[in-house]
Each structure stands twice: as structure tokens, then as C-alpha cells.
Amino acid sequence: MAAAGPDLYESLQIRYPPSPARTPALGSPLAASRWTLGTVLAVGTGVILVLGAALAVLITLHVQGQAELWAAQAELAAVRAPLLPDPNGPWSPSESPAAVQRQKEQLGRWLQGLSLGWRYHRGKIYYFSGEQKPWGDAEATCRSTHSHLTSVTSPEEQDYLAQETRGKSYWIGLAATGPGGSWRWVDGAPYSQAQSFWAPGQPDSTDYGRWGGENCAQIHPVGNGLWNNHNCNFSFPWICKRDLSRP
């Protein structure tokens, strides 16, 4: 009898289908649940990062705002001190209770102004608008808040405003409204050509036809915030200024 060959079942390879528990079919509830969990984790991580960044910004703004308030309070306390009455001496008109009350009300208005977006700097508060208006309308808006378009009376103040405007154009309170078109500050500060910060070649005399010439000044991106004269009827953001030493 011939030798028996290899058993058929010894050479037969049986391939079992993958276990459903190990490899879920596409579209199965288990696969869908795993995809959903991964998506939720990714979205959740993104939300946490965004909230963390927002919290950091809020903390920074809070600390900056507190510093501005403390500085304003210290400045105004120094201004208010001369109005306090001498308990051992007679009352004078400037030391009357009414004067002290007016000073308290003034302090309250200034601090309220800071909470509404004004920025404190060396005894003054400034408002950098987020909208745009012609020069005359911008000045009217400043007057409605007991302020004026800002004057610039020192290199230090010029540097501060140039830094805060961050390379954008803002109306300031300088206009050619004097005799012969001479430049004047709208808040009454004295104007001096020697103490001005015009960009090279400014002020010039561009004519806009029926709109007139360039009789209003703005802080301009050229030269890191140097001044440019422009037509007053064009709309730009503006800067208001209030002096804390004045009522």
C-alpha cells in the first residue's frame, strides 16, 4: 500500500474573520461613538485654550486698569489737598464745603471716565475713539464730554500719543483758524512752531476744490506719529483730552 500523504487538514489554513469587538465595522455604533469622543476631546481642548487666552487678556486689562485708577486717585488727591479746610483756621471761599463737594464730584466724574475707556497719563486722561468723524464733529463730541481734541505740548506727550495710536491716523486739536490761517490749539494751549512735530514737508497746501484746503492736523503713521495736515471734512478717529487739574 502506498505511503499515506500529508493529512489534508494539516495543510489547510483557516482564516477567521476579524472579531467585531476588535475592529468595529464602519458605521457601527461603537465606531461612531469613538469618533464622536475624539472630536469632543479635540473641540474641548481648543475651547480651553481659547478661554485661557481670553482670561490672560482680561487679567492684563484688569491690572492695567487698576494701575490707571490708582495713578489717577493719587494725582487727584494731590489736586484736592489744597481745598481741604484747616480745622484750626477760618474758612476761606476756596475751602468751603461746597468747593470740597464739587471736587469730590469732579473726582467721581474722572474715575467714571476712566471706566468708560479713557486712559490716564501724567495728570490727564485721553480718549482714543473707535469710530471716525470729520474734525469739527470730533471736536463737538469731545466737548460733550467736557474735553477737547488733544493738544500736544511736549516731546513726552507726543511720544505717548504716537505710541498709543499704534500707526494709525487720529485727529488732534490743531487747526488753521487764526489770522491768516495760522495754527491754533482748540483747547487754548499756546502753539509754537518750534515746539511742533510736523512730518517732513508738512504742513502743505493741497486743495480739495469745493471741500477747501488742509486746515486740520492729525497724528499720522509717517515718522512714527508725526503730524500731517488734512482736509477737515474727511473722517478719521480722534483723541480727546481732559486735564485733571481743571474742573
Rank of each mutant, 00 (worst) to 15 (best):
A4V: 14
E10A: 15
E10H: 13
S11C: 01
S11E: 05
P17G: 12
P20W: 08
R22M: 14
G27C: 14
P29K: 07
R34Q: 15
W35L: 09
T39F: 14
L41K: 13
A42Q: 07
L51H: 07
Q64Y: 04
Q66F: 09
A71V: 02
A72W: 01
A72V: 06
A72G: 03
A74P: 04
L76R: 01
R80L: 09
P82Q: 11
P82G: 08
L84Y: 01
P93K: 14
P93H: 10
E95D: 00
P97F: 03
A98Q: 14
Q101H: 10
Q106C: 03
L116W: 14
Y120Q: 01
Y120W: 03
R122Y: 08
Y126A: 01
G130C: 01
K133A: 15
E139V: 02
R143G: 00
H148S: 13
T150V: 11
S151E: 02
E156D: 08
E157G: 00
Q158V: 05
D159A: 10
T165A: 02
R166S: 15
S169Y: 08
G180E: 03
G180S: 05
W185Q: 02
A189F: 02
A189T: 03
Q193V: 09
A194C: 05
A194G: 12
S196T: 09
P200F: 09
G201E: 04
G201C: 08
D204Q: 10
T206Y: 09
T206P: 01
G212Q: 03
C216D: 05
C216I: 01
L226S: 11
W227D: 03
W227R: 02
N228G: 01
S235K: 09
F236C: 06
W238K: 04
W238E: 04
C240F: 00
K241W: 00
